[in-house]
Simulated scan of single mutants.
Amino acid sequence: MDLAFLLGILLAFGSVGASVVLDRATFGGLLLPAPIILVFGATVFVGLAGGTVSDAISAFSAIPKALKGKKPDFQGTVDKLVELADIVRHSSLIKLEEQAETIPDPFFKTALLGAADGTDSEELRGQLEEEIHTQSRGAKAAAKFFQTLGGYAPTIGIVGTVVSLTHVLENLSSPSKLGPMIASAFVATLWGLLSANFIWLPIAARMRRLNELEHERMNLIVEGVLHIQAGLSARALGERLRPLVPAGKAKKGKGKSGADE
C-alpha cells in the first residue's frame, strides 16, 4: 500500500489538531455531531443529485483502489516487453500467445494475443486505444464526482453556519449563551472547508494522478507490442521505450534489455 495519501491526510488533520492545542482550545468544540452530519450528509446527497446512483456507487467503489495506490511498474513493463521481443526474434509471433498466458494484466494479455493472431497493426492500435479510453473514462468519472463534492462542501458548511446563526438570533435575550452558540455556528463552515480540502479534493487528485500513470503504462504496452509485431530487436525496443517512461519512474535497464540484435 502506498502510504502517501493516508500519511498526508493524517498529517494535515494533525496540523489542525496542533493548532487547536497551541491555541489552548478544546476538540470538543469542533467535534459537534450536528454540523458534521449536515456537512458530510448534505455534500454526498447533493453530489448524488447532480449525477446518477451508478456514478456515486462507482466513485465510492474506487476509493479502496485509490487508497491502495498501486503505482504502475514502468521499468518492469519495459523489461518484459524487451524480453518478449527477444523471444519473438528467436522464434515467431506465435510465441506471444504462450507468453500471454503467464501475464496477469488483462490489457497486456489482450495486446499480445492480438499481435500473435496477426491483427493488422493499425487495427490493433485502434482496438487497444479504445480500451485505454474506456478505462480512463471510468477513472475520470470517479475523480470528477469527488471533485464535485469538494466544490459543494464549503458552501454547505456556510449553509450550516447560517442555520446556526439564525438560532443565535433567537436567543439574543440570553447574552451569556451567545459566545458559545456563535462559536458552534462556525463549526459547520470549518468542516465544510476541512472536508473539501482534506478529503474530497485530495481523493479526486489522487484518482486523476493514478489514472494518468496507468494511462501512460498502457500506452507504453501498445507501443512495445506494435514494435515487437513489426520485428524490432530487443535492444532497439529498449532504446525506443525508455524515453516514454515518465520522469522519476525509470531505473537502470537489466536482463533482456541488452539482448543481442
Rank of each mutant, 00 (worst) to 15 (best):
P35Q: 00
D23E: 15
E98C: 07
A25C: 08
P104M: 03
I57R: 12
V44S: 05
P64F: 02
V53L: 09
G50A: 09
P35E: 01
T26N: 09
L48T: 05
T52L: 04
D79C: 10
G50T: 07
I36E: 02
G51W: 00
K68D: 13
P64W: 00
G51P: 03
A59P: 01
T52S: 14
D86I: 04
L48D: 04
P64Q: 01
F45L: 12
G29I: 00
L48Y: 11
K70I: 12
D23V: 07
I87T: 15
A25Y: 06
K68E: 14
A66S: 11
V88D: 00
V44N: 08
E97C: 07
V88T: 03
K71A: 12
L81F: 06
A66M: 15
S54M: 12
L32S: 10
L67H: 05
T102W: 04
E101Q: 14
A66H: 01
E101P: 09
V39Q: 00
L22Q: 13
S92G: 06
A49I: 12
Q75D: 14
F40Q: 03
T77E: 11
L93I: 02
I63C: 08
G50C: 07
A100K: 01
E98P: 10
T77Q: 09
A100Q: 01
P104K: 06
G50W: 06
G76Q: 14
A49H: 05
G47F: 02
I37R: 11
I103M: 13
G51H: 02
G76V: 15
V39I: 04
L81Y: 04
G69W: 05
V21K: 14
S54Q: 09
Q99I: 03
L67Y: 05
V88F: 02
A59T: 01
L48M: 10
F40A: 14
L93Y: 03
K71C: 07
G69E: 05
I94E: 07
E98A: 13
V53Q: 06
S58M: 06
A100N: 02
F27V: 04
T43Y: 03
T52P: 06
L93A: 00
A100C: 04
L31S: 09
G51I: 03
V53T: 10
G69D: 04
G76R: 15
S91E: 14
F40R: 01
T102E: 15
S61E: 14
Q75H: 11
A100E: 01
K70H: 10
D105Q: 07
S92W: 08
V39M: 00
S91P: 07
V78C: 05
A85I: 02
Q99V: 09
I37S: 06
V21N: 08
L22V: 12
L96W: 00
L67N: 08
F27G: 08
L22N: 09
V44T: 13
V88P: 00
Q75Y: 14
V53K: 07
E83N: 12
D79T: 11
P35H: 02
D55N: 10
K65P: 06
T52N: 07
V20G: 07
S91K: 15
S91F: 11
L84I: 03
Q99P: 05
I36W: 06
D55S: 08
D23F: 10
E101G: 13
L93D: 00
E98R: 04
K95H: 12
S54P: 05
T102H: 11
A34E: 15
K65A: 15
T77F: 13
R24N: 09
